[in-house]
């Protein structure tokens, strides 16, 4: 969208499994690129200076702050945003756990936290509560007080390890289920 004030550049990358080729202004941040040029509005921009973590995406399988990355820096990479987590109409177990444990309120930080936790659990499938807290400490949530996020992550970890039904703690019966 932005007028290429200098030499525009072509960038190619894969976003949630789809090949994307665009001509971009080199100053365009990856977060703006994903949101505005690729329609991935689940990438949320909370601070644009790399502190809040809302814009976190997976870049070649590792988390990156898309606000602190220029689109041109992501040339040739594979990007996963929150839109790429669910499998068709099925929520990812992590999303299910956040739903069940009330791990979100306004939901603005949630996409970044889900992707951060995806990486955390890939490297540490059975984290302690302290490790979970440290793992999400680069993501500001202004609503929840974090506890139900920690509960959700612990429960999701159990499900993803395949060692339990993920009953976890912190929830009661759910009459809607």
């Amino acid at each position: 969208m932005s007028t290429p004030t200098r030499t525009g550049r072509n960038v190619s990358m894969t976003v949630n499994g789809e090949a994307v080729d665009r001509h971009v202004d080199p100053r365009r941040t990856l977060s703006d690129f994903l949101r505005k040029d690729c329609g991935a509005t689940g990438v949320h921009v909370g601070c644009e200076h790399g502190v809040c973590g809302a814009c976190t995406v997976l870049l070649d399988g590792r988390t990156a702050r898309s606000c602190c990355t220029l689109a041109v820096q992501a040339e040739g990479s594979e990007i996963t945003t929150v839109e790429g987590l669910a499998d068709g109409g099925e929520l990812h177990p992590l999303q299910e756990a956040f739903w069940k444990h009330h791990g979100l309120q306004c939901g603005f930080c949630t996409p970044g936290i889900l992707l951060t936790v995806t990486e955390l659990l890939a490297g540490n499938p059975d984290p302690t509560d302290d490790e979970i807290r440290e793992g999400i400490s680069g993501n500001i949530c202004r609503c929840t007080g974090y506890q139900f996020i920690v509960d959700a992550v612990r429960d999701a970890a159990e499900i993803l390890r395949g060692t339990g039904t993920g009953t976890g703690t912190g929830t009661g019966t759910d009459p809607t289920r």
Partner: peptide, 24 residues
């Protein structure tokens, strides 16, 4: 010079750094 960008890109966004060219 643009390396990982974790310090530089926020400075660019705040326009505290306004380089004419980034060498990536």
């Amino acid at each position: 010079i643009l390396a990982g960008g974790q310090s530089l890109v926020p400075l660019l966004a705040m326009r505290l750094a306004q380089p004419t060219t980034l060498v990536d």
